[in-house]
Write a protein that binds this DNA or RNA. Structure first.
Lengths: 212, 212
DNA sequence: TATCTTATAAACAGTAATGTTGATAACTAT
DNA sequence: ATAGTTATCAACATTACTGTTTATAAGATA
């Protein structure tokens, strides 16, 4: 009988290391979050996706709320790692098409990263998670942007503190735009009569052209 | 005894019109949403803030989810009204300091409006609410921006379709930046070493200067 | 004033979420 | 092998959130 078969099949357990189990569960939680938005992030649903019971989640995370906190932290950390990884793939920091900055942009706003980030922000989380990674990332980007500013100025001499401030504004602008684009992009694009597909690319080119 | 006093005090009922009751409840819901983020938007909490029982909410809105939908719609409508109101206060659409566009910016990103908007977006709501208001608003802004672009060009002749496209990009940029700023602004500002108070103003000036 | 409507509330009911317990199977170490 | 550890699960318990019913008081209308 089917019931007997499943009953016997059920006996098999996969025993993971705590780290593996946590990672598996966090991934499932992220999947669920992308799928259904801020509400509906319940441990039973997550457990179903991860292929475990909800008590396993409670075992590893303590409580449902603790899982959410861990998820928020984990997502910020992974996002930063992704951006760092992307930055290391280019040979020079700023090729003529500003591609590194825009690869960062893409990581931020594509694939729902900005929405997940927004969820994190909206929760009012501490966001002290990955503060050091963040600082390292910022320093790296900042140095590159300063360099690009001086290059763009050509012969003209740019004072260090001016370039520094300018670079900070540029980074701030790109970051906020990326977040806003990721969250409200599709909606705004429709409203404004930019039909997503081509216009997105055009917009980014236009944006890049007036950054420096 | 205190219990007797409250028991007697409880007898007094405030009887509101349906419109008043709905408005009161929606305001409480918004307050709660600002305070606690996407979760914790439960009708009992909202009822407590509004000073009614949760069954009153159910009476007026039908269900908890219906309240959330109404809230999302209501917020978008109010936001648009605010922006429209702000736009009508200036005599010309684009004075030299671009103040109207930035008053719009402020409405969008200040006082948690962007966070509420983000919540709305994250819910995956239709957002068809206020679509016509939105279009009217967009047309108004768009016309102003086109005008400003041509003014900025001075003697040079700007083709209509070029100005139109340019204007759309500018509006898109301002809107996405405003949303991103409202959501991630405080966090990013700290990270980037712009200490909120003064730098915010400076950033907006810098931003305005390179828009046209 | 009398009647009707309905906004409100209290108590109850149902459901869906989280959390708890005890047993067991899958590893590790001795 | 054997013992010890613990990740896992099923069943149960509990909380909390939503929804229902019934009664009542505040107005409106006549």
């Amino acid at each position: 009988m089917a019931t007997t078969a499943t009953a016997e099949a059920r006996k098999k357990r996969i025993r993971r290391s705590p780290a593996e189990a946590r990672a598996l569960i966090l991934k499932a939680a992220q999947t669920r979050l992308k799928a259904v938005g801020p509400e509906g992030l319940q441990i039973k649903e997550i457990a179903a996706i991860a292929g475990v019971t909800h008590s396993t989640i409670l075992h590893h995370f303590g409580s449902a709320e603790d899982l959410r906190v861990s998820l928020a932290e984990n997502m910020v950390e992974k996002l930063l790692d992704d951006i760092l990884a992307v930055m290391d793939t280019g040979d020079t920091v700023f090729p003529e098409d500003h591609s590194v900055l825009f690869r960062v942009f893409e990581v931020l706003c594509d694939d729902g990263n900005a929405r997940l980030l927004a969820w994190t922000m909206l929760r009012g989380a501490d966001l002290r998670a990955g503060e050091d990674t963040l600082m390292a990332l910022f320093d790296k980007i900042h140095a590159g942007v300063v360099q690009a500013i001086k290059a763009a100025a050509g012969d003209m001499v740019v004072k260090d503190d001016v370039a520094d401030r300018h670079a900070r504004f540029i980074i701030y602008l790109v970051a906020t735009t990326a977040v806003g684009d990721g969250i409200a992009g599709p909606y705004l694009a429709r409203l404004i009569g930019l039909d997503e597909m081509e216009a997105t690319k055009d917009f980014r080119d236009w944006f890049a052209a007036r950054l420096f």
